[in-house]
Amino acid sequence: MRKVIGVLLIVSFAFFVFTLVMRDLWVEDPTAVRTLGQAAIEETIPQSGAANTVTAIVVQFRGLDTLGEVTVLFLSALGVALLSGEFAGRGLKEVFRDDGGFILYYGARLVLPIIILVGVYIVAHGHLSPGGGFPGGVLVATAVYAVLMTGVKKELSTRIMAVIEGFAGLAFVALGLLGLLSDRFSFLANILPKGSLGMVFSAGIIPLIYAAVGTKVAAELSTLVTSLTGSDYASADTTAQGGKR
């Protein structure tokens, strides 16, 4: 009965979408970009000096939305950390029954610097090649996961990560407030010199903002998974002293 209702709902929804929406989209590929996208493509180099159009839109033309996105990610990490307070003390021993073993342990230690290097490279070249702050931060967080999952370290202190995350968020907002002090008087204005196309030190404050975003995302995601696996150094400490329930 439930499945019949489900199928009926899906079929009616599909009918609605096909007759109203897809009727205009079922065409050949468009041959020209729409007006707003064309304006973004043409205004990238004059206004921001970045070679990556998507980066210029995300950081400069729609920079406030990126601040909102960073806030949403912070809120979700906060929610996960708050909700998994009860996992404290029942850490990695419950999740993984045994250690990684020889190959995982030494393989992780070998590969770790390469992962961090690639992550930092993707963050630093966000305005020249695809990537940017978000996937680069995720890669650096993956290095932290490799440390936890392969038994290189059993506990991580989230206090240092919380401090790093706070300062990175502060740096983002401070860079935006610097724009208010300039002659253009707008939040997140691009005040530094634009340089020449294709150099790492170009495009104004875009590399600095992406560096702040990448650091914040990396610290956030490390805190998220550390609190999920219960390998928070501080909580393990208090549990050893009799638990904090």
């Binding site: 996208g37 159009t53 995300v58 939305d65 990610l73 990490a77 978000f134």
Partner: peptide, 22 residues
């Protein structure tokens, strides 16, 4: 290619992961 929808989807992917994690 039009870069505007790509920047919106960049935000949407990150927020989708946040929703899944919570």
């Amino acid at each position: 290619v039009d870069p505007l929808p790509q920047s919106l989807v960049l935000t949407a992917i990150v927020i989708g992961f946040g929703v899944t994690a919570v």
